[in-house]
Design a protein around this nucleic acid. Structure first.
Lengths: 358, 358
DNA sequence: TCTCGCAATGAATCTTTCT
DNA sequence: CAGAAAGATTCATTGCGAG
């Protein structure tokens, strides 16, 4: 059993290092894999022979096959390392994203969304032979189909987006200027450094404070920087010493946000359940009290066990609400009202009282 | 050798019909194949109305393997039928587009761009479980690598796009309202009719007047309608009699446009907004920073998700502003201020900064 | 005739907990 | 594990009918 440390950069080949990590140990994976088919040594056939540069159709197919084998090898390890309720993010462009997406599906992940990173300042197509390639694609997937309990901070992103739900197209500027890390000689330290804002949104959406985020292609550590800033933990895997040095220096300088500012808008689903009967027990409502439909057209009587009665119809607040409206379902908490000196009030205000006292 | 007519709808299974077409005979292919959606049960909106889902038999496949086999069969025939300098367009969503893209690459096509159709009015995610699925993806590919003589009307598109290069993300509204073809009983005639503006741009970009455009999944004939309007020829393949009838009637009514009239068919410009959360992502504000009400009497703290907190009140800039003022609504952008060396400034100035960088 | 409010709807892989 | 019950959940646009 290997040791499991977080907030570290593990040096080595990503597949080898992944194999050393325990099963079901990380909450999220973010992967920005190489797609240049000739990127030094990454591309090995299943038999470990190296793929040469290629031109003709047959070899092209061969190189796609090699890329697929490589992809499926690291991705399968990521799946093993991921907790059941964890999710994976991968990013790519049209060169490789179809390979990534097919692999994700074939390995048993369940795609939740594809997200478009719309670049506000893309590099123009100088020759005028194609459309300006102005976006990249992220794929977000759960570990398996039917896994409904993945982390998604829906309400946080809705607040972020000024109270309308976050869409699948995100606009960010390229990583340039101050943020772009340069060598001593002024050259960019890494060819594909991602904007930290992108990682900020990814982690805010799909992880919680304290979660462990794994990045098998760590590069200069954008994932780690965003994780640290947001109070998440990270594990980076990187092969190149140069990148590791840059990342370590970068990460040392990152100042985490205060824990109390990392709280985000919570969901109602995460609040404790309060049975309607508890309102009666607490004396906020009494047996015999009347509840009223939103338009006042109907009423029901509260019984001692927290059920409602209307004529010869009885049931929970939800069931009776649905019956009143002849609807397939009804949230009784927001449906029923009770009478006060100041007029009608939702029974949900009484639930809030109980929760506040808890 | 089969007869080769254009401006026709060929009835039958698309693979069978494709086999009857001669080699190297069409200039472009546009294909909107089944998406293999894999839906669960019914989906209800919050108001309990039922979503009219795509549950047609033609969209059901037993497995990814079955879908891949189908995809490669029709796509290989399309490649055979395509002229050497011809290009293919396919459209899909995350359910199927990775399969399409991998097949395109494996069959020897050469991807030129992937294009994002950004929907200005997508259906929301009713249950709050994912990001709003607000786009679909098109793939544009040449018949083979090294084929440089494909048609791309660079200058036309640049003029079309207010003299800047056309990007890979396009914004269009869904096909609704008058454009959406209805049955006699008022139901939509086809579940997935595409907006003609999308096809208009596709054909304008990648074909010339007189070119032959093949659509192997013709449906109600949007490709044919755009082709006819633009002075291109079309060949549609469709299996369902109902769709063919609708398409024939539709096509008969299409009037080819005068070239000078075509310029007006641009897309609605509805650029993405800059949400408040983006200021936090960009580092213009940090979690923990203070915002102040106009009269300075109240303050709130910024959190990582762009929500504000004041005591135990939380919410978006708008919601918390409204709470502060005990008002029904509030424009948070003009309400909140932050402190600088030069005194207080509106957060709206920060939004302007981000927009300027875009 | 014009305005306002309400209903309808679009390629959707759309819940969680307890018995 | 299946089934029942609790309970949470929507954005932009079009069209129609009331006023």
């Amino acid at each position: 059993m290997s040791e499991f440390k977080t907030d570290v950069i593990l040096k080595g080949d990503c597949i080898q290092v992944l194999k050393s990590l325990p099963d079901a140990s990380v909450d999220a994976v973010f992967a920005d894999p190489p797609y240049n088919l000739q990127l030094g040594g990454d591309l090995l056939r299943p038999d470990n022979s190296r793929v040469d540069a290629v031109d003709d159709d047959w070899d092209k197919f061969d190189s796609f096959a090699a890329y697929d084998a490589f992809t499926r090898a690291w991705m399968a390890e990521c799946r093993r390392v991921l907790k059941p309720e964890g999710t994976i993010w991968v990013i790519g462009s049209y060169h490789n994203v179809f390979r990534l997406g097919s692999a994700i599906q074939d390995l048993g992940f369940w795609v939740l969304n594809d997200i478009v990173w719309r670049k506000s300042n893309p590099m123009p197509n100088f020759k005028g032979t194609r459309f300006t390639n102005a976006h990249e694609t992220l794929i977000w997937a759960a570990r398996s189909q039917g896994q409904k309990r993945y982390t998604f901070n829906y309400d946080a992103l809705k607040a972020f987006n000024e109270d309308t739900q976050m869409r699948s197209d995100w606009t960010f500027a390229l990583c340039t200027g101050e943020e772009r890390i340069k060598d001593a000689d002024g050259k960019k330290a890494h060819p594909t450094q991602k904007p930290e804002a992108l990682l900020h949104r990814v982690l805010l959406a799909s992880t919680r404070p304290g979660d462990v985020v794994l990045d098998p292609f760590f590069g200069t550590g954008t994932t780690g920087a965003a994780a640290k800033r947001l109070g998440r933990r990270y594990i980076g895997i990187e092969r190149e010493d140069d990148y590791i040095r840059v990342a370590e220096k970068r990460l040392a300088a990152v100042v985490p946000a205060n824990p109390e500012d990392l709280a985000v808008m919570g969901s109602k689903r995460s609040e404790p359940r309060v049975p309607f009967g508890a309102l009666v027990e607490a004396g906020l409502l009494r047996p015999g009290d009347r509840l009223y439909a939103p338009d006042g057209s109907r009423e029901a009587r509260v019984r001692a066990d927290g059920s409602l009665i209307h004529g010869d119809l009885t049931g929970s607040i939800h069931k009776l609400g649905a019956l009143m409206e002849n609807a397939p379902a009804c949230n009784g908490w927001t449906y029923w009202r009770f009478k006060t000196d100041q007029g009608f009030k939702s029974i949900d205000t009484l639930r809030a009282e109980i929760r506040a006292a808890m």
